[in-house]
Simulated scan of single mutants.
Amino acid sequence: MDRKFVISIALLCWPLTVAMSHAAETVITEGQRIASSGAHGAAACISCHGAKGEGNAAAGFPYLAGQGSAYLLKQLNDIADGVRPSPVMQAIAKALTPDERQAVSVYFSALPHPFDAAALAADSDRPVTERGEWLASRGAWDKNIPACNQCHGPAGTGVGTTFPALAGQSKNYLIAQLRAWQTGKRSPLPLGLMPAVAYQLSAEDIEAVSSYYAGLPVSARAAVSGSQK
């Protein structure tokens, strides 16, 4: 291909690239404002989900940092529309405009995960012994339950913008979401898998797999913390 032609195309595309970059920065800035200050009288996201979107496990508030923007946006829309019941979140989600929900979703998705995903993925090669880890990494095919990691990634570190990370989420939060799918209180999400999977899980299974994912990042977080000192 002619070099001058390639250069001409690059020069023509450059203003568009700059404009797109500026637009993305504007969206993230708006999302950060909503996250830190709230909007239209709604509480700031960080008051429950942490200054860096790291969540509050003790209170059962999930972390949002690094989760896919499409996933976060769907949850806000579902909560606002009453598809996903949430007494705490519904008024907040409804107060935000569609553009504001998009902005805050993009902002949180751009933040780093509150754990070392590479360390967790490497650690996933250990022998599987406990029930929760077995369900996460192998599934239970006698119940037609696929491994959680098949959609949620190695050690539950998330996949793409749609399948959220599970590693390090509050145990109580994870239990509550699985029970919500069992009772039809959360939308099916991609491929409609979650209600079918959750329905097959026993109370013991839910306890085990939730405990497993909740406990995963402890060593990874310690490693990250140590490396930053």
Rank of each mutant, 00 (worst) to 15 (best):
C148G: 02
A198D: 00
G168Y: 04
P98M: 07
L178K: 02
T161A: 15
G68N: 09
E25R: 15
C45H: 10
I28K: 15
F115Y: 15
F115T: 01
A80R: 14
P127W: 13
W134R: 03
S109E: 08
A198W: 01
Q200Y: 05
N149Q: 14
I46W: 08
A80L: 05
K229S: 05
V27N: 11
V6F: 13
A223G: 05
D205S: 07
L120H: 03
P62Y: 13
I79W: 12
A119S: 11
Y71M: 01
G31Q: 06
L191Y: 15
W134I: 10
H113L: 06
Q75G: 06
A198Y: 01
G160V: 09
E204V: 12
E100W: 08
Q150H: 12
E207W: 03
K143A: 01
P190A: 12
P87T: 08
F61H: 03
E204G: 09
P190M: 02
V104H: 13
A176D: 09
E133V: 12
A42N: 08
S225C: 04
P85V: 12
A165R: 09
G50L: 04
V88K: 13
E54W: 08
G66V: 02
D123C: 05
G160S: 05
Q228R: 15
S137L: 13
A222M: 11
A58N: 06
E25M: 09
G68A: 05
A51S: 13
E133T: 11
A59I: 03
G60P: 03
G215F: 06
V104M: 12
G153H: 11
S21Y: 11
A220T: 10
V83M: 07
G82E: 11
A198M: 00
V128F: 03
T17M: 14
L11Q: 10
V27M: 14
S210L: 01
S8Q: 03
C48A: 12
L201F: 00
Y63R: 09
V104L: 08
T26Q: 15
G184P: 00
S47P: 01
A39C: 04
M89S: 03
S105E: 13
M194E: 02
V209G: 02
L73E: 15
H152Y: 10
Q228W: 09
P190G: 04
I34L: 04
C13I: 12
S187A: 15
A110C: 02
R131Q: 08
G160F: 07
A43C: 05
T183M: 02
R33Y: 12
L178V: 06
V159R: 14
A119I: 08
A93N: 05
L96E: 02
A19L: 14
R126N: 10
L76D: 05
N172A: 14
L166A: 00
V27G: 09
I46G: 03
V128S: 02
K185A: 14
N144V: 04
P127A: 11
G192I: 04
I9L: 15
L120Y: 07
A42G: 08
D123L: 10
L73R: 15
R33E: 06
T157C: 10
L135F: 02
A214G: 07
L73I: 06
G66F: 04
D142K: 03
N77D: 15
G160E: 03
I145D: 00
A118G: 06
N172V: 12
G184L: 05
S8I: 08
G53V: 13
V218T: 15
S8C: 08
S202L: 00
W181F: 14
P87Q: 05
T162G: 10
L178C: 02
V224I: 11
